[in-house]
């Protein structure tokens, strides 16, 4: 009699535990997800993310959809934890093999999460850089200059996409080659275009820190004689009667300086 009752109780307990434990895990998981979402939102707020993304296209787009960048990020955290909870529930319930769950956790889920994060950061960073460069160039009324900010933005987006695709283990070799070519072009053109500026700046460092001549000295450089009016990173201003010479600093270094005593 006793053993029968015990057996029934035991069976009852196993039944309960096999259905209740997954349920409890699931409910706990959902709550954890929501709480973590809220907490991360506060954390993002405290980190000043709303201020730093203000005015970017991404922020404006998600605002139109009724949320914000911090909202989206915290939603992603919530979803991620939720997916973990579902996976855990299923694996405890025996519907999903534990090894599958571990694989899911370690592998794809995390990668999707990271990829999404990279894309969002890329979008925001791209917008931010575009706005900054635009502000910086706003006084230059030259049509060609307007190409630079979007170019910078799309370069950043391109790199972010590459990283995200790489994270998802999608074949990116052709895109990598494009990126490599692009960077090579930038370096080659940059080196050619900025050759003189770089040389002048390097010479300017020397002139500024060691000051072989200073404002008020009369010097002769490259057969141009006058009073030094200003020395900055790239140029030296020499003024003589009615004439002002603006000499790139590398010329000063190359030709040498004659200082009148």
């Amino acid at each position: 009699m006793m053993t029968a009752i015990q057996r029934i109780l035991h069976q009852f307990w196993t039944e309960i535990s096999s259905s209740l434990v997954p349920l409890m895990v699931f409910v706990t998981g959902v709550f954890t997800a929501i709480i973590l979402g809220r907490l991360s939102k506060r954390l993002f707020m405290a980190a000043g993310i709303p201020d730093s993304v203000e005015g970017t296209t991404f922020e404006r787009t998600v605002n139109r959809l009724g949320t914000s960048t911090t909202g989206i990020l915290s939603w992603m955290v919530t979803l991620f934890v939720l997916a973990l909870a579902v996976g855990l529930t299923l694996s405890i319930g025996g519907l999903l093999g534990t090894s599958y769950y571990a694989e899911l956790l370690r592998g794809y889920l995390l990668r999707v999460f990271v990829a999404a994060l990279v894309i969002i950061v890329g979008l925001i960073l791209g917008d931010k850089v575009q706005v900054e460069i635009q502000n910086w160039l706003q006084d230059i009324k030259l049509t060609e200059v307007a190409l630079i900010p979007p170019a910078a933005k799309y370069s950043i987006l391109f790199v972010a996409t590459l990283v995200a695709l790489e994270e998802l283990r999608i074949e990116t070799l052709p895109l990598m080659i494009v990126l490599g070519g692009y960077i090579l072009l930038l370096i080659v053109f940059g080196a050619i275009a900025f050759k003189d500026l770089l040389a002048a700046a390097a010479a300017g460092m020397y002139l500024i820190f060691l000051q072989p001549y200073t404002i008020g000295d009369t010097i002769t450089v490259d057969e141009k004689r006058g009073i030094v009016q200003e020395v900055d990173l790239f140029t030296t201003y020499i003024e003589s009667e009615g004439e002002e010479f603006i000499l790139p600093n590398h010329i000063v270094m190359r030709d040498g300086i004659m200082r009148d005593r």
């Binding site: 404002i215 008020g216 000295d217 009369t218 009073i227 030094v228 009016q229 200003e230 003024e239």
Partner: peptide
């Protein structure tokens, strides 16, 4: 301004 001349 014109610091070179002023110095002289």
């Amino acid at each position: 301004g014109d610091a070179g001349k002023v110095m002289n």
